[in-house]
């Protein structure tokens, strides 16, 4: 079911091109013909956007762990997972592994903090959500406009496990944020949301593969994006319901706005269904800012630029409003508002 070939930054032959169906809209090979030189060391600078929320931390600086790489959560815990990149033209790989023990509640606050330029980052996260455990993963990504990054998360849900994910990104030169989630046992519940706000010639590709392998699982997905200038947003969502996964309820929506003449949106929402007792739906819209609404707002005295920003913000905030943790929600809201 893997949508990602095993990418190895030291071997250019493993870089997918658009000829690989799952990478149709994110041609890594085009931008990266040769394996990059390995990155040197980097300093852990500022404390990161989620510092005020406390908790434990796993930190990678140019792929090198600053301390531990694995975390086992029990009870109620907060973990900040920081991928720090500060490199010029070099590449690095980081891998973290997170386990939520039965009944644990983990708030996982992940940040990709990129500095420098033209680096290549490859991040891997494995998350196991045990029986009746809950993991909320919130990801904020800010990278230089000429960076290339691929993030792959593999999430496994046990019976009654709950998983909540919200990815918020401003893109890069080529950026792939991939989540592969499997409902391995019955009654698991997943929410996978995404938000992208792209300017200039940035690109991002939010790809999710959700595999319902057991009965009575639910999946709810909402991804929203806005592209400006010549930016390119990609959403690929695949929901698989395997034979015997009866009682599955899976819903996926992607709504995008092209706020410029030459922005681009590519979307591929897939349903692959082998069980009959299911409720599955996906919706996809691509549009532009509503001209009538824009006029209405301006008529009340709000200048055109502000009116546009207001509509964009309102459009995107719907994703953030789905975050249940109030403190984290406020951080994400402020983070996004500063980048509108």
């Amino acid at each position: 079911m893997s949508a990602a070939p095993q990418i190895d930054l030291t071997n250019a032959e493993t870089f997918p091109s658009r000829r690989t169906e799952a990478w149709k809209y994110s041609d890594m090979k085009r931008w990266l013909r040769e394996a990059p030189e390995p990155s040197g060391t980097a300093l852990v600078g500022a404390p990161g956007p989620f510092y005020d929320l406390g908790g434990e931390a796993i930190v990678f600086a140019n792929g090198r762990p600053v301390g531990v790489t694995d975390f086992i959560a029990s009870g109620v815990q907060t973990l900040r997972l920081r991928f720090i990149s500060d490199a010029v033209g070099t590449g690095h790989t980081a891998a973290a592994r997170i386990v939520a023990r039965p009944g644990a509640r983990l708030l996982l606050l992940e940040t990709h903090e990129g500095k420098g330029s033209a680096y290549v980052a490859h991040n891997k996260v494995e998350i196991d959500v045990a029986r009746d455990a809950e993991v909320t993963r919130i990801v904020l990504i800010e990278e230089p406009e000429d960076a290339i990054s691929v993030t792959n998360a593999e999430v496994r849900l046990e019976a009654g496990g709950r998983y909540r994910q919200t990815v918020v990104t401003t893109g890069a030169k080529l950026q792939r944020i991939e989540t592969q989630l499997s409902h391995g046992a019955e009654g698991a519940d997943a929410r996978l949301d995404g938000l992208y706000l792209l300017k200039g010639s940035r690109h991002t590709d939010l790809t999710t593969v959700v595999d319902h392998r057991a009965a009575d699982g639910t999946t709810s997905q909402l991804t929203k994006g806005v592209v400006h200038d010549t930016a390119r947003g990609v959403f690929q969502g695949k929901i698989i319901v395997e034979r015997g996964a009866d009682g599955t309820d899976a819903r996926m929506a992607h709504n995008a706005l092209i706020a410029s003449e030459r922005g681009e949106i590519d979307a591929k929402p897939e349903l692959i269904i082998y069980a009959d007792d299911v409720q599955c739906a996906h919706g996809n819209t691509v549009g532009t800012l509503d001209e009538s609404a824009l006029f209405y707002i301006q008529q009340r005295g709000i200048p055109a630029d502000e009116a546009r920003a207001l509509l964009v913000q309102a459009f995107l905030f719907e994703v953030i409003d789905r975050i249940e943790d109030e403190a984290a929600k406020e951080v994400v809201r402020a983070w996004l508002t500063a980048r509108l």
Partner: peptide, 24 residues
């Protein structure tokens, strides 16, 4: 004047079909 400037100058149009503005 643009629409916002007219509004600031005191013009208010009560719409026959007021717009819905989701999220605000």
């Amino acid at each position: 004047l643009d629409p916002a400037e007219r509004a600031a100058a005191g013009v208010f149009l009560s719409f026959q079909y007021p717009m819905e503005i989701p999220g605000v």
